[in-house]
């Protein structure tokens, strides 16, 4: 553990980056999607403009949906705490089983509170929309938890070839799980809502919608940084290297996720059980096969 002022400064800088970068990375994602469509697309700062605009608008909440508004604020608090915690752990070299489990608990808490937002709304369409999110989370959380657990176990076998192979398989599985958990195509959440005319955020407006959008973007950043934190950070000796790996790695992975989602079509949520189940089962069998070899 590097308990130096340098680590503390790096933790603060990384936390600030994790608060400021996600909307800009979303701007990059929108630019990439526009480039694939042969369009100019919005400016890189467009998502920041959207958030600031929503923040200055009126907040209209229907009667009986006060609890949904509260869950949004709790979700934003958890998202900010999660990004700050991940930054601190990475800067101070806290990459053992305990810190990773703590981060995963916060990720699952964030997912649960976003599911609760739709269920707590007085609008039945918001409840219907939250079913899609609940189903995808139930299917994908198993793969996410399993991949992180396998990556932690794989570290014990390093530096043998078996350890690196096991870590590679579990990291690949984690990439798929993080991609699906980020709510992008083919199992998107927010983008699907305008077409389905239902979704967890259908009744949110103004600052509450800004809070929901911002916490979702921070969640995406955490999910893009998670594979680097779990699989790469333990092998980097200095705080500088770990922080740099997290910032550059998460930005690169966000871009890769953006290209992947822009080239994929939307899939039915019920098909996620079959396709994701097949990927996670095959990966686990491969991991066990290498372990037994």
């Amino acid at each position: 553990m590097d308990s130096t002022p340098v680590s503390a400064s790096l933790a603060a800088a990384l936390a600030a980056a994790s608060f400021l970068l996600p909307p800009l990375l979303d701007g990059v994602e929108r630019k990439i999607r526009a480039a694939i469509h042969s369009r100019i697309g919005p400016p890189l700062t467009q998502t920041w403009f959207d958030i600031l605009k929503l923040w200055s608008k009126e907040a209209k909440l229907p009667r009986g949906a006060e609890l949904a508004g509260l869950t949004v604020l709790i979700g934003l608090s958890i998202a900010l705490a999660l990004a700050a915690t991940l930054s601190t752990f990475a800067a101070f070299g806290l990459v053992g089983v305990g810190p990773v489990v703590a981060v995963m608990v916060m990720v699952f808490a964030l997912h649960s509170i976003s599911m609760a937002t739709g269920c707590a709304s007085s609008n039945p369409f918001a409840t219907i929309g939250s079913f899609r999110r609940v189903f995808l989370n139930v299917v994908n959380e198993v793969g996410l938890a399993l991949s992180v657990a396998l990556a932690l176990v794989s570290r014990w076998f390093i530096p043998s070839w078996k350890g690196w192979a096991l870590l590679g398989i579990s990291t690949g599985m984690m990439l798929v799980a993080c991609f699906c958990a980020s709510g992008r195509l083919p199992y998107d959440i927010h983008e699907a809502e305008p077409e389905l005319a239902s979704g967890t955020v259908i009744e949110l407006s103004g600052p509450l919608l800004a809070a929901e959008l911002y916490s979702h973007l921070i969640e995406r950043w955490v999910l893009a940084a998670l594979p680097f934190y779990v699989s790469l950070a333990p092998f980097l000796p200095s705080a500088w290297a770990r922080c740099l790996a997290l910032v550059l790695g998460s930005s690169g992975l966000w871009t890769l996720f953006a290209v992947t989602s822009a080239t994929l079509g939307r899939s039915r949520a019920d098909l996620a059980l079959r396709s994701l189940g097949a990927i996670y089962t095959a990966s686990t069998i491969a991991w066990v096969g290498v372990w037994l070899a």
């Binding site: 369009r39 697309g41 400016p43 809502e193 955020v201 949110l204 919608l209």
Partner: peptide, 19 residues
Amino acid sequence: TPYFDVERFGIKLVGSPRH
């Protein structure tokens, strides 16, 4: 549609009047 690319002006279609 992408032909007119109104997203470059920050214009976006939303599905709820609340947004």
